[in-house]
Nucleic acid binder design. Sequence first.
DNA 1: CTGAAAGCGCTTACAG
DNA 2: CTGAAAGCGCTTACAG
Lengths: 358, 358
Amino acid sequence: MRTVPDSETPAADGKRGPARERPTMKEVAALAGVSLKTVSRVVNEVPTVDPALVTKVRAAMDRLGFRPNLAASNLRRGDGRTHTVGLLVEDVGNPFSAAVHRAVEDFAAQREVLVLSSSLDEDPERERRMVRALVDRRVDGLIIVPASSDHRYLVAEQEAGTAVVFVDRLPTPLVGDAVVTDNREASAQGVRHLISAGHRRIAYLGDTESLPTARDRYAGYRDAIREAAARGCVADPGLVVQGLRTVEAADAAVSELLSGPDAPTALFTSQNLVTIGAVQALHRTGSQHRVAVVGFDDIPMAQVLDPGVTVLAQQASEIGRLAAQLLFARMAGDTAPARAHVVPSRLIQRGSGEIPAA
Amino acid sequence: MRTVPDSETPAADGKRGPARERPTMKEVAALAGVSLKTVSRVVNEVPTVDPALVTKVRAAMDRLGFRPNLAASNLRRGDGRTHTVGLLVEDVGNPFSAAVHRAVEDFAAQREVLVLSSSLDEDPERERRMVRALVDRRVDGLIIVPASSDHRYLVAEQEAGTAVVFVDRLPTPLVGDAVVTDNREASAQGVRHLISAGHRRIAYLGDTESLPTARDRYAGYRDAIREAAARGCVADPGLVVQGLRTVEAADAAVSELLSGPDAPTALFTSQNLVTIGAVQALHRTGSQHRVAVVGFDDIPMAQVLDPGVTVLAQQASEIGRLAAQLLFARMAGDTAPARAHVVPSRLIQRGSGEIPAA
DNA sequence: CTGAAAGCGCTTACAG
DNA sequence: CTGAAAGCGCTTACAG
């Protein structure tokens, strides 16, 4: 009995240090006593392999803990699909992005495709860098919530075979399919809802005007106010506050509006942080049962608050699902002209939007 | 002048149909009039290349829209890093998972590493399938919120060089580093907080007992109650309701508890859906200013509600950041024994937990 | 039904 | 400073 290791079995033991490398098909083949090609057939479940060999190969794979290297197989394989798609959102941590992400993942997972995601934080430069990082990994397709305002750089990627679908905002120019919310129409609907409850002095509390979605929502507000001019609706610039990006800013803006001389009797808020800030201000000043609110974007706990908060809820899951569906259709060869798809928001009445004008 | 295309420049034009393939280094080399190897040097920014050649190669790359194939370079490259890590969470759409995800992404992005994520929905079988899918893509490391209860199958992956870190729950056995919340200690702290406000009949409303985290939180509740037995704290089984998984179930359980004979004066709720349901029941029955609540997990709008909801907030971002830090240390060669790291939760007093006993 | 050769897009190791 | 050869782990195309 020898106590010193010898070198009769060169590849059998951890010669290269503690972490032994991943076994290759070649090693599996050697252990099973077949050719590399037969192992490849077993891995790819080619049905014409002798069952006895299949058993031997399977045993060798299990013994070595073999896992095929997908990247290596794709290199020579005809279609070259990585079975991975990229998803660029504003922030994987925020509820809208997270809901879109989950819907995309569900659609992809059913097709054995994984999702490589990244947050852009509204940074156009980061959008370009991440697209490049994803292309270098050869994702089969790309879903992007745009942060930049010029998407011509993506045309080359599409021509090279990477499908691209945009979400939440239209690309400029329209270089690919897009799935967006009905920002303008839904906002108008929300404001009309307040008008029909008798309100005539309706404030608009909105996000930065530089965001296209914010502009569309403001346009919808003005549409509804203008329509009701004959019924006495006031287009008072003093009722419009934009550039609100935080709960605190919205809270302060509402407090100031309500303490002023010609205070509004109703508020239309353009996104969820603004809605939360507005609701907070109303509760703090005890005016939550007197001043009506309709918000764009659903907010958590909206039905637990008293009154419940009436909102236009974007259908984030449906947006994500549709985007994924369009992407996979493109990946499968669909070459129809690019178009924008609008997913309607839903008005959810919970109380705050149904408070009548005093 | 010829009007019919000829074949003098074989690779110059779209011969293979509408979608032209991605250019390779070979094609760039041909266009630039240098060898493949020189293009490789330029791509990898090797400093010793003649500046004139660099310029020519760069021009050829831009003209063809060349993008290196990361998978192909990794194949021969020594370290074989894909610069991609896998993240398996309960549901990318839920707030805890999303916050962990964002923290992991931030840590990874600084190191030019992307995140491939997937939701497990508490399905052990899905955990195994997704680990396999990620290993097949040769991720450099793996962060897992376990859904299964036996993690020995991961030892082979670790030996093959894939770093693994667990989050939120300990692996069984402890086959890798783990980052968990102080479930038991924080729960005890929350219940002690209610006891110090004078409460003696404190209900426990909890999730399914089969979840280890739920068990730990219940243990913390019992610890605190037992400690205060001398001060008259009651360990009444009638005050304990477990198996609550939805807002509705928690709401119903609280309604029933409050309408019973020996109703509690305070509630300890073990996770956010249960807390939301409890708060909803209290508001509906008008007892929100009378019955105290402390919840485990922060809930949205907690400071907007009246009273604000006192909670033990898990530090999801810190958990994600630490998990990523540990993972990258392992990927860099750290071979210290695996250990569990506990991230403390923070007690946030907002009003509901400070209501004194009647 | 099985296997030896060539090749995918790139890097390493080695000459010049 | 530059390039021709061999090789990464696998598949394709072709013989047997």
